[in-house]
Simulated assay, not measured.
Amino acid sequence: MFNVEMYQGNKVENYALVQKQLIALIEDEPNMIANLSNASALLNQFLGEINWVGFYLLEKDELVLGPFQGLPACVRIPIGKGVCGTSAAERKTMRVEDVHQFPGHIACDAATRSEIVVPLMKDDKLIGVLDIDSPITNRFDESDQQGLEKITDILCNYL
């Protein structure tokens, strides 16, 4: 599931390496869009078996498309709608094994089968969400969730 050419450890070790790489990319850059752009590119390179990775940023009462890697995507998602909107509303990670079983799933890419969405929280306030889609059912597990939650924590510390 990982890009084996770059990462040779187990999943936890690989996430730790990506977390270090992320810090090196963003620690001296104050621009949020630049940092989210590099984060999406890094995750796109790091994660195997995905077809979309990016960010939706909170604007008033909806999520608006931010930096991403993949096919063109839905631009606006209401809070509480779909996996991203539900994650934002509940302020918790949503790991969906089969998006076709998720009530109200918003299909931006028909190839997507599973999804993980992690809220971006800073000072107990929602900034947006990290959204990752996969064409593989049940692609994301607990170690992905923990690794990606740590990545969003790092991002939020620098935003």
Rank of each mutant, 00 (worst) to 15 (best):
E49Y: 00
N38M: 11
L47G: 06
I136L: 08
V12S: 11
G85D: 01
K20Q: 14
E27H: 13
A89H: 11
K20C: 06
A24D: 12
L63E: 00
A16E: 12
P103A: 07
P72N: 06
Y158W: 04
A110P: 04
K125N: 14
C74R: 13
I106C: 05
M32H: 09
S114N: 04
N38A: 08
L148K: 04
L71N: 14
P72A: 04
N3Y: 15
D28T: 13
S37L: 04
D28V: 05
L120T: 04
A73R: 09
V64I: 10
N10W: 02
D144P: 00
D153L: 09
F55C: 02
S143V: 15
N51Y: 04
K81D: 04
I127S: 09
R91T: 05
K20A: 10
R139T: 03
F102D: 05
L25D: 09
G82A: 07
I33G: 00
T137I: 11
L130N: 02
K60W: 00
N44L: 06
N51C: 10
D61N: 14
Q45P: 00
Y56D: 01
M1S: 12
I50P: 03
L17I: 13
I79E: 03
M1C: 01
P119Q: 11
N31Q: 11
N35H: 11
M1D: 08
E97I: 06
S40I: 08
A34Q: 12
V53C: 14
D109V: 01
Y15R: 02
D133G: 03
T112N: 12
A111F: 13
K81G: 00
F46G: 07
A107S: 14
L47A: 05
F140S: 02
A73C: 10
M6T: 10
Q146L: 14
D98S: 06
V83I: 14
Y7V: 11
N38F: 11
L130W: 00
I127R: 10
E149P: 07
P135Q: 08
Q8I: 12
A16W: 03
N14P: 09
K122R: 13
L148F: 01
L148P: 03
N35C: 10
P78D: 07
L159K: 02
K20F: 08
P30D: 15
V53L: 09
I33N: 12
L63Y: 05
H105K: 06
K81V: 06
A107P: 05
